[in-house]
Amino acid sequence: MTLAAASHGFLSPTGVEIAFLLVGLVTFGAAVVTVTTRQLVHAALWLVVALGGLAVEYLLLTAEFIAWVQVLIYVGAVVVLILFGLMLTRAPIGRSPDADSGNRWAALTVAVASAAALVWVVVDAFRTTWIDLDGPAAGSTAVTGASLFQNWVLPFEALSVLLLAALVGAIVLSRKAKAARAGEAPPAKTSPTGASSSGTSPSGASSSGTSQTGGVR
């Protein structure tokens, strides 16, 4: 390990490092476009590029199972959920000029300051540390599955219970307003303001929402 580390040069990167750097630049650029673009669907699609780039980074770090889980869950499921959410909350045709709030310069200051501090600390801490990527893969499916089902069985099962609870919670959150809208009269008059206004007149609530946006602009 020490001999292998001594043979490394700081300015003579290996092929894996060059590939990691290039894919990392693509990932970081896609992430920046994701948080700065004003077209909402484009933001979700650039998020696909960023998450796919991270999957490639996992492959370069020899963690193949994590990479395929990343592709399946993030690129396959989460981005599709986000696209559904975008299309259900508004029909995003073209640019939306109100995507950024008014405090974006303060946010940029905070982000740049924290990035500078984190990069400085991390580079200073791990300046002389190398990952040994030779030999058998550290994150192959056999290794990951064996450690997951030998040492991490109880958190794994607890996580399945949490996923079930999240599923039921999402269904409950989606069904509550629909039930209040369907059976309108008696619970709507006793319930407080927000639910009652949308419960009795959904068209009026939506039109008032659009008039609010017009008034603020």
Binding site: F20, T27, L60, S114, A115, T129, W130
Partner: peptide, 19 residues
């Protein structure tokens, strides 16, 4: 691979998400 590459990329991505 130098450990600073994934650590720096992770820090930059985190700050992008923070922004």
């Amino acid at each position: 691979m130098h450990l600073a590459y994934p650590a720096v990329l992770s820090a930059l991505l985190f700050c992008t998400g923070l922004y």
